[in-house]
Design a protein around this nucleic acid. Structure first.
Length: 191
DNA sequence: GTTCTAGAAC
DNA sequence: GTTCTAGAAC
């Protein structure tokens, strides 16, 4: 095999239709194997597009369909769009283009490293809308240079819900859990 | 992408 | 002494 076997994990999963939460003729939604939040899904096209760096404006209709599937899975799971991030990693490591659909709580045992956090909560995360803008303006997605990637990966651990900056990952995780528990209580009180 | 673990940080 | 991070993985 040309590429590392671990990098083909998503393609293997996609080939098994029983893993598809929902799907269309062109794409399917699966659960992220190592979900970094309470909800974390991936939308993958059946077409063999390796990554965002193989996209041109010709792919926009496919991307729009992938985005619709993203909105659909949020609805299927009884969630609301405003509690989700929808976008791509600017430095993907897995084979096959995949759109992340992840809830903003980030409460998960699989969230372990600073790089995990910063890959969703800095410019390392490319929002769907921003990707479409790039394709319309430049007909391609701009690669970040390695220095920028390194800097963004090492950014301070800033909470995505308040001004708190965590000293390390365990304190960030504890803090995120507190946000999550507070929200849960509020929801219960509304009922 | 994750696992493992040496050595830094506390 | 324990917790935590960061780099190798053939």
């Amino acid at each position: 095999m040309a590429t590392n076997s671990w990098a083909n994990g998503l393609v293997k999963t996609l080939k098994d239709p029983t893993t598809h939460i929902i799907s269309s003729n062109l794409a399917a939604v699966i659960q992220d194997k190592y979900a970094k939040a309470k909800h974390h899904y991936l939308v993958l096209p059946f077409e063999d597009i390796p990554s965002i760096f193989n996209l041109t404006s010709q792919h926009i209709s496919l991307l729009q369909e992938m985005h619709l599937l993203a909105l659909n899975v949020i609805e299927v799971k009884g969630q609301t769009q405003d509690n989700f991030l929808i976008g791509f990693h600017n430095q993907p490591s897995m084979q096959r283009l995949h759109l992340h659909v992840i809830s903003k709580d980030f409460v998960s045992d699989c969230l372990k490293t600073k790089k995990h956090w910063n890959s969703f909560n800095t410019a390392l995360f490319l929002n769907y809308d921003d990707l479409i803008v790039q394709l319309n303006e430049n007909n391609k997605v701009k690669r970040l240079d390695s220095v920028t990637i390194k800097e963004l990966s090492n950014e301070d651990l800033k909470c995505n819900q308040c001004t708190y900056v965590a000293k390390n990952m365990p304190s960030l995780k504890q803090h995120l859990l507190e946000h999550y528990e507070k929200k849960k209580k509020k929801t219960i009180n509304r009922e």
